[in-house]
Write a protein that binds this DNA or RNA. Sequence first.
DNA 1: GCCGTTTTCGGCCCGACTGTTTTCAGTCG
Length: 573
Amino acid sequence: MINGEIASAFNRIADLMEISGESGFRVNSYRRAARTIKAHAEDLAVVAAEGRLTTLDGVGKSSAERIVEFVETGTIGALAALQETLPAALPDLLRIQGLGPKKIAVLHSELGIGGVDDLKAAIEAGAVAGLAGFGVQSVKRISEGISFLEKSGGRTPLGIAWPIAVAMAESLRGWPGVTRVEIAGSLRRGAETIGDVDLLCACDEADPVMEAFVSQENVQRVLAKGSTKSSVTVAIGNGRELQVDLRVVPAGSFGAALQYFTGSKEHNVRVRELAVKRNLKLNEYGLFDGDVQIGGETEAEIYESLGLSCFPPEIREDRGEFDVDVTPSLITIDDIRGDLHMHTVASDGKGTIEEMARAAMERGYEYIAITDHSKSSVVAGGLSVERMKQHISDIRAADVRIHGIRILVGCECDILMDGSMDYPDDVLADCDVVVASIHTGMTGAKADPTDRLLRAIDNRYVTIIGHPTGRLINRRPAMDIDMGRVMSAAAASHTAMEINASWRRLDLKDLHVRQAIETGVMLTIDTDSHHMSQFDQMGYGIRTARRGWTTADHVLNTREITDVIDWIGQKRG
DNA sequence: GCCGTTTTCGGCCCGACTGTTTTCAGTCG
């Protein structure tokens, strides 16, 4: 799969062109093509071979030629040519707040700066202040930007940012004069990682709210403070910081502002283009016909005035939402009837079977599957065949003893290097649910992960492929899997694929979820809980599912227990 | 560079904040 590499190359071209002073429209066209390429599930080498590249959004003749060039040679001449004229690491400076293409061009032409280290040295030496457009304040801001980049370490996982945002929003709601607060931005869209937290607030008087916002105890630095918009950073542990933006808007504009600040940027560009086509103007204050506001108190008003449905935030990515007649009715957490992947003290969990069952009942679940690790997962306390047989009896006994919830017998069985299962078939046959997962040999070329998954799917007792790509967000990349083949095999064999709801994984991710649905694969959304409290992570899995356009029908654990058992039985024959 | 039921040229979303170039460019979202 070369799509990621091509998208990176296109973004690099855009960065370098922008610093070169190239037309912003040309720059944007490369970024748009890069985005399409990155989001395309099918391998671009295949699309190129079949001559379909220009059917992709934002890919024209020129981009298609560059893609073909990459497929054939592994490089793009245009990128190489740009890198001859500008240092390859110069675009890294674009990630520093307060530095844009124009200032970076000055830094390079005047001081020969080629990367972040050069810039730090030049600031240290006092060479930057005094350059055209650089005063004392901007140098200070750039220094802070460098330090923030080092402390933020890029994007923050959803599961870290969400509780912080909820707590800040809750606190804001209690302030005098504040009438409404919502979380917007990529957090509201349920993105797996976020750049910053966007809070939106309606209030009687903005200035005192802004003053209180920047004066909060957990604020590390104030990046900006105005009457409608302020930015601060807050500490999130390990010496790292997260940016939080607050916007204050009039109540009559709240819907327009929520729509605008929820994004995505690409989605908003499309919406505004549609407004322009109708001779209307859309901004964060409302939808306007000339000077007359015709909408903006609610989001629905804006969308409906433009002849659109009020898209759920999770699909506002310009990934086809404008092209369908009917927006699907996406799954909600209330559709979930059970959880089919969790661990107990028998392996590496912290709760007993009974504690997990009671915690599940508190969440209104009708069933759970206990799925402890198999024998090869030694560090995770995987169960030998003998212990597993005892565990099966214990689960059956708990199911009889505990009323109000059905407790299914399961296991999370390792997929071994050759794709065979870690337990013999007779043990798997005694389980109601088998989650099959890869835990070892993810890196290195010893075994092809696609072949391993395909062989696992071929096993009649395997119900669910657990965390299929093995990625850990910000920590470990996904295995290089031919997802098209795996999904086709899963769909054909009545094997479900998991959306692992742990915020560290979110695996399948949104794009793969979409691909699964298009391929006809049954999904499950499971928390992989190792503690009772981790059932709360279901919400992150739901968001990921929604980002992949999932409805309740696509998900096995929205069904009644008898239907779940029937569905599993169809594969076993 | 891409795109098109106002098409093959001429447009491509819009506003806030900051600092510095005293009237606005650069950056950001």
